[in-house]
Amino acid sequence: MAMDQQAAPLTLAEKLQSLPKPMIYGILLVVATIPLFFSVKLPNKCIDPSIDFYAQAMKLPDGSKVIICSDWTNSTRGESKGEMEALLRILMRKNIKFVLLSIGDPQAPQVAKDTIREVTSAEELHGGKHYKEFEDYVNLGYFPSGEGTIVSINNNVRSVAQGKKDFPEGSGPKDALQSPVFEGIKSVSDFKMFFLVTASSTNRTVLERLTNCPMMYMVSGVMVPENTSYYASGQLKGLCGGVKGVYDLENLMEVGINNPGPGQITSDKYKGESIPGWPGKTNTGKGTAYYLALHFTLALLIIAVIVGNLGMYLSKRRAN
């Protein structure tokens, strides 16, 4: 009877190729969790797009004005929130005012506002300025038609804010155009930079339509290859991609570029220039917190692929 037949023991090749799914999931969970309990500063080589991003952001005149198009939600919190936090820290420390809007997702404006609140509270604790809504940044909210909105920003930026209300601290809603952020703004070229923090296809929407303002993107990891192409062609002045980009920025905020000292980061492109960092301030965030765990999970995947391929190779050799 079939029941009596003993199943043939699995060969090594078969064993290597048939690890049970729960085991793989379990190992991944453990490997993604344990490193989070250890705070380790890992060596890092900052890549050019991140260095350019930091350098261009630092070169923005103190007190100038920029636009942040925030199109991420917590679905990519692991990457986008770290990016947004790093960007906000740089802007707040340089007292740069910004217009906030979203063309990607109805949840995005609220998520961005929550992040701004968290970062300004953290900065205040360390002697930073309290960034006030309406005074230091103005929120235009969500626009479902990204295409038309970006064309309008390029053509007549004030028209995009027309009719929009924002909530100043300590008073009721006011017209967004009355915000000090819009003072002296006639066209989009009066803004020094257009920052896009996104995890969706709005990167292309903006790139296709915005011609009158320099741009820098902060994108999720999966979007890095596509956006590297835009960075290489000069359409983007800088690019921060994924958690690696965040870790780069956090390192750059600590030591700057071409400044002698421990952990020095040098760049041939900025030879002869010294771009400062903020040593001693809170520069680390999600990038530093997650980078060690990312090492282990990537290593796990590499091992899993090698094990699977080894199993296949042994099977083939046995069959031959």
């Binding site: 793989i24 993604a32 679905s75 995947l301 899993a304």
Partner: peptide, 22 residues
């Protein structure tokens, strides 16, 4: 939202182990 999108990591891991062959 964060939970839903993070589940894919498990499937990528499992798929890479089972199907990513030379």
């Amino acid at each position: 939202d964060a939970g839903m999108f993070s589940i894919v990591a498990f499937y990528i891991m499992s798929a890479a182990y089972r199907a990513f062959r030379a």
